[in-house]
Computed example of a mutant assay.
Amino acid sequence: MRKRNVEILFRLTRREAQELDKKVKKSGLSREAFLRAMIEGYQLHEKPGPVFYETMRQMSAIGNNLNQIAAKANALGFVDQPLYEKEALKWRKFQTEVKEKFLVPEKS
């Protein structure tokens, strides 16, 4: 049996429907999911752009590399110092790039 079995029909003006569609598109959700989230009291945000997903991918890759270094150090009883320093440098560089991209104001 369906979990959601109550159907609600309501009318909007053309302007209201356009505003709803604009907000739904920005959220990246379906219209139904958007309205359910609003009913549940969620503060919705715009779907992040491709820069966000690339940043997350890079952060995940660096985290995986550091995890491999930690697992190797645990298994062998010592840290591969050159590899660790290389990954630490990558992390610091990445951190600086993220700060510059998202936090430092741009000059107009």
Rank of each mutant, 00 (worst) to 15 (best):
P48V: 04
D80M: 13
F78I: 07
S30Q: 09
S60L: 13
Q43Y: 00
A73R: 00
M38Y: 02
P82K: 06
L44F: 04
Y42R: 07
K47Q: 08
E46D: 11
V79D: 03
E85Y: 00
E87P: 01
K72A: 09
Y42E: 10
L44D: 01
H45P: 00
V24M: 01
E46T: 06
R31Q: 13
R57C: 15
R31F: 10
M59H: 13
I62G: 02
E32F: 15
P50L: 10
F78S: 13
N74K: 10
G49V: 12
A73D: 03
I39Y: 09
S30M: 12
L29D: 00
R57A: 15
S30F: 13
S60A: 15
E54V: 09
N74Y: 02
P50W: 03
F52R: 04
G77K: 08
K22L: 06
V51I: 15
E85D: 05
N64F: 07
Q81C: 00
N67T: 01
A88R: 12
L83W: 09
A88W: 04
A88P: 00
Y53S: 14
S27R: 08
V24A: 00
L44A: 05
Y84V: 03
A71E: 05
Q58T: 12
A37H: 13
K72S: 08
Q43S: 03
Y42H: 11
P48K: 14
G49W: 03
F78Y: 09
E40L: 15
Y42K: 10
A70W: 02
P50M: 14
I62P: 01
V79L: 10
S27D: 07
R31D: 05
A73C: 02
N74I: 02
S27W: 10
A61D: 11
Y42L: 10
Q68T: 04
L66V: 04
N65W: 03
L35I: 15
N74D: 00
R57P: 06
G63R: 07
N67R: 02
G41C: 01
A61P: 06
L44K: 05
Q58L: 15
I62V: 10
V79T: 07
S27C: 09
G41E: 03
K47F: 12
I69V: 09
E87F: 05
Q58E: 15
A75N: 07
K72G: 03
R31L: 04
N64K: 13
A70N: 04
Y53T: 14
L76C: 09
Y84R: 14
K72N: 07
Q68M: 00
I62K: 04
Q68R: 01
S30R: 07
T55K: 08
T55G: 08
G63I: 13
Q58P: 08
N74V: 05
E32W: 14
E87A: 05
A37R: 15
L66G: 01
Q43W: 01
P50V: 14
Q68L: 02
Q58A: 08
A73S: 07
K25T: 09
V51T: 14
Y53E: 15
A71L: 04
N74G: 01
L83S: 14
L76G: 04
E46M: 11
E46P: 04
P50T: 12
K25F: 09
R36I: 12
E40F: 14
N65T: 08
F78A: 06
